[in-house]
């Protein structure tokens, strides 16, 4: 019977950290970019002009029906074809994540905005505020509060999804860990580590949501 050898984690630390850094970068870019682009899409979808709302709706439907792996492949092969030069797997993965997440954030933001009572905007407009000011000072602050738990949940999902970048030959945290696991013959230790890290991240997000909810009700 083999004893556990937790030293494998320390020995492969810098390699694992690289994977962790890539995961973190993907999560960060996907979240920030996805929120910004998703906000634009949500505004388009809420427009009363059909030719503005329809393209955004189509985009969201298509993106949400495709598996992320496919989207990653797509951008990896399509963007170089479209712009005539290679952009590297990291760049294509970042773009793919942003485009993919934007569709989900669009729906989260749209629901958040739609849940703010119509009378709130009317009250703001009635005092002479312009539409943009009503959005910024009255509707969005309320929408953001309602959206916060869903956004945190989405961040956890993205973190789990970063492992899919192996299809474009990138190593995220999970992939680096599994490389070490088979190279050093220490799967138990490595996959335990992976599970613990995922668990910590998920629990912190849950705690953040709870903390946030408590803060709101007082």
């Amino acid at each position: 019977m083999n004893d556990f050898d937790w030293g494998v984690i320390a020995r492969s630390w810098s390699f694992l950290a690289e994977g962790m850094a890539l995961s973190a970068l993907l999560v960060l870019v996907a979240t920030v970019g996805g929120l910004v682009l998703g906000f634009g899409l949500a505004l388009m979808r809420l427009s009363t002009h059909r030719f503005i709302a329809a393209p955004a709706a189509a985009y969201v439907t298509v993106m949400r029906s495709l598996p992320l792996v496919l989207v990653l492949f797509w951008f990896y092969f399509l963007i170089p074809l479209a712009i005539g030069r290679p952009i590297g797997s990291l760049m294509s993965a970042l773009i793919a994540f942003v485009m993919f997440e934007a569709a989900f954030y669009c729906e989260i933001i749209r629901a958040g905005i739609a849940n703010v009572r119509k009378g709130q905007a009317e009250a703001g407009l009635a005092t002479g505020l312009r539409r943009g000011q009503v959005m910024r000072h009255i509707v969005m602050p309320q929408a953001l509060r309602a959206m916060m738990p869903l956004v945190l949940n989405q961040i956890v999902i993205v973190f789990q999804d970063t492992s899919l970048v192996y299809v474009v030959a990138l190593h995220d945290f999970l992939t680096t860990a599994s490389i070490v696991a088979s190279r050093d013959g220490r799967p138990t230790e490595m996959y335990t580590l992976v599970a613990v890290v995922y668990l910590i991240i998920c629990l912190s997000a849950t705690k953040a949501v709870e903390f946030y909810r408590k803060g709101r009700t007082t």
């Binding site: 009572r117 709130q120 009317e122 009250a123 703001g124 407009l125 002479g128 505020l129 000072h137 309320q142």
Partner: peptide
């Protein structure tokens, strides 16, 4: 034009994320 006409609503429509003072000061 609207800024010269006050409106009061059946369901108040105060901004819930602001204090009474901030509600009155916003516009």
């Amino acid at each position: 034009l609207r800024s010269r006409i006050g409106m009061v609503f059946q369901s108040f429509e105060l901004y819930p994320h602001m204090t009474a003072l901030e509600n009155v000061s916003l516009a």
